[in-house]
Design a protein around this nucleic acid. Structure first.
Lengths: 227, 227
DNA sequence: GCCAAATGTTAGGCTTAACGAACAATAATG
DNA sequence: CATTATTGTTCGTTAAGCCTAACATTTGGC
């Protein structure tokens, strides 16, 4: 139902589609021009122009002043880009020995340069992985979503013992902080308490048995599942 | 005397510099606007503009209507790009299992997208290789040339037994043909005769003991050393 | 050594992706 | 519910990198 490979889109178009898809992966917040502009580090006017063009190409649905949604064709390209990004991150960590906090920016550039053939080879080399180094699901070649699991740490019931399933890779700075603390995918911990007005969640790490206070942005970035 | 990493140049500028360097690697033919335009697949006017800009940046020496030469700074960037290209080709063959005739175009794109850090990791992963899959020398990080060796097959003495040291990667089509024939770096053969006006060189492959006639473009693309 | 052919340069346009400024529409507040 | 604040859109520019067409300079043949 298209024939156009994702590589035929401009890097900017690829970024737009990937961002729209990613923004709705873990929450249902509607995607707006402003949010996109901020995350892409460009001006709203630039995004407004760009979205208009994607709409003309039938990749997004967008009425002026309305919110932005992917069409089926647009979603297909977006998922292909996410697959690229996550396979590349996995490669950088597993094969080249990068730290999991160092891979995001590198993958961000590479994802626009690799061919479908290279992605296929990489997938084979890596043993068809289903999770990237942050625990994010890697979509299959056909775009099947690899259903995500877990809830944000900020929403996990106090007292429960959980394992980290994913950590948002949006902020490398934060990832380095987590590394220092010993927080990574598969780390086990107990949720001790949420202190609502301080926006602080206290957790206890298993193993070192250390207590850690996390602010809202940190406990929103960590996804856990009960064990 | 620079500090500017090669990644700060535009992809087009990187291509120009790499091409100028490569053109003089195996022969002393002066580089002209026309040659560059043809190899890059763009119009001479485009190259003329581009070279003027590189001259302003102090990366090439070029007086109007004159020939084109790299400055020391330009050479540094050019060699860095060649290093990237050849390490990437080696990676694609050694790690991802590409055929040596499939890697050129992929590397051509990737070389503009990888970081210096990635190149360093790749080099280590590959065991600091000194030759790429075509037998071309991989410059060291400091730009030291890894002295080339051998002569073109077209210039090798008839009757001599030689080993292939490199095969120009300029034409993937030709590489596929060579693969079919069993010609690759390290292949041993005997030069039987050069027939000057037919522009044909006859060689005998060791092992299969097969005789092969090669035209001028083929016997220019193959470099050999006496064994 | 002159003139034509080959080669190189300049000038003017096009496209993409960015910007800022001015304007339009929607949302929020009193 | 009117007015202000926020958010989104349009429009005119800019910078790269490409193009074509017109012009300039070399080079090579006779």
């Amino acid at each position: 139902m298209d024939g156009m490979p994702v590589s035929d889109l401009s890097p900017a178009a690829q970024d737009y589609l990937k961002l729209i898809w990613s923004a709705t992966e873990w929450s249902a917040t509607p995607v707006t021009i402003g949010v996109m502009a901020e995350r892409l580090g460009v001006r709203p006017s630039t995004v407004s122009d760009g979205i208009k063009k994607l709409a003309r190409q039938g990749l997004v649905a967008h009425a002026p002043y309305g919110s932005i949604e992917l069409t089926d064709a647009g979603r297909e390209h977006a998922v292909a880009m996410v697959r690229r990004h996550r396979l590349l991150e996995t490669f950088l960590v597993d094969v080249l020995g990068y730290g999991w906090d160092e891979v995001h920016d590198e993958a961000e550039v590479l994802e626009h340069a690799v061919s479908d053939k290279l992605i296929g080879r990489l997938d084979r080399k890596l043993g068809h992985p289903t999770r990237d180094p942050h625990g994010d699901p890697i979509p299959a070649p056909d775009g099947k979503p690899h259903a995500p699991e877990g809830t944000q740490l900020s929403a996990a019931a106090a007292g429960g013992t959980v394992a980290i399933t994913r950590i948002s890779d949006a902020d490398p700075q934060m990832l380095r902080y987590f590394t220092q603390l010993g927080l990574a995918p598969d780390t086990r911990l107990t949720v001790r308490e949420h202190r609502p007005y301080a926006d602080v969640t206290t957790i206890r790490l298993h193993g070192p048995d250390r207590d850690i206070d996390l602010g809202a942005s940190a406990s929103d970035a960590i996804w856990v599942v009960a064990v």
